[in-house]
Write a protein that binds this DNA or RNA. Structure first.
Lengths: 152, 152
DNA sequence: TATTGTTATACTCTATAACTATA
DNA sequence: TATAGTTATAGAGTATAACAATA
């Protein structure tokens, strides 16, 4: 009896995705390390930059993390003086997180590093290819309800 | 003076890549957990399935990990009885790792789970889109020398 | 001295679950 | 009882560095 040939690692898109994503994130992690933060911290800081003030539970939803994980992340950012925590007026159980002025000043520098990292990895693609890639990733994300945003 | 608008998280391909890749790997991790292994362990097992026997340092190179990390991974697989370690005949410093019969029997079941996971995430794309995505990821990987393989 | 591999240490990321304070 | 948040615990993943044996 002949064995059915096994699918290889390389036949799975998940394999390529993981390899490239790990390389991109790792490279970005090295860059932001110079500013004293991690990739997950950058995402949280960037979100707070837009909303000014947010409940940890909302951030957890947006980042796809548990509340416990957000607490731990927030604790580190508090220690670094990049965010501040305040009690909510209406609901005494609730807190809000916001950037400190130091945190607010840091975000543009981190954004520049993110821009540079993206360019380093995807600058070799044509504009059309980059658009294709974004379209495909958004499509998968929206199909799996990874985000609440529209594909286009 | 007007502030230059900041790039958002969503303008970075690295952001989308990380989001989708994390979801795919996490989902796969849940699946293989039922067979008692992790994603990284699956990759190592699958590699050994093809080569029969390999030095830890070679596996480290192929997987983009340090030798220390491979040692730790190998230690867990040894404890689970899925691989075996043997001294090398020529070089007494060197070891080789190989699948046990139990490990060899497990790989096809894990491969089926990998197939299913890929289908669940990328089955919504057309065949052309999947090919596009693979092409783009391979292109980035080869440009950054993440692998020693050709793009096509 | 250089190399192969292991071991020790440390830190991030993340989850689960127990807990506290409020609702 | 249910909810917001924190804290405790644990394990994966990974890196760096110290170490042992051999080359």
């Amino acid at each position: 009896m002949i064995n059915k040939p096994l699918s290889t690692l390389e036949t799975h898109l998940g394999y390529w995705l993981r390899m490239v994503s790990n390389a991109v994130s790792h490279s970005f992690g090295r860059k932001v390390e110079a500013e004293g933060v991690t990739v997950a911290e950058w995402v949280l800081l960037r979100m707070l930059y837009d909303v000014d003030r947010s409940a940890p539970s909302l951030l957890a939803d947006h980042m796809g993390m548990t509340r416990g994980a957000i607490s731990k992340l927030a604790e580190r950012l508090l220690e670094k003086g990049l965010i501040e925590r305040a009690p909510s007026a209406e609901d005494k159980r609730a807190h809000t997180l916001a950037l400190t002025s130091g945190g607010r000043g840091l975000v543009p520098r981190l954004a520049a590093l993110a821009d540079a990292n993206d360019l380093a990895f995807f600058g070799g693609l044509t504009a059309g290819e980059r658009q294709q890639l974004e379209h495909l990733l958004r499509k998968i994300a929206s199909e799996r309800s990874l985000i609440d945003m529209p594909v286009d």
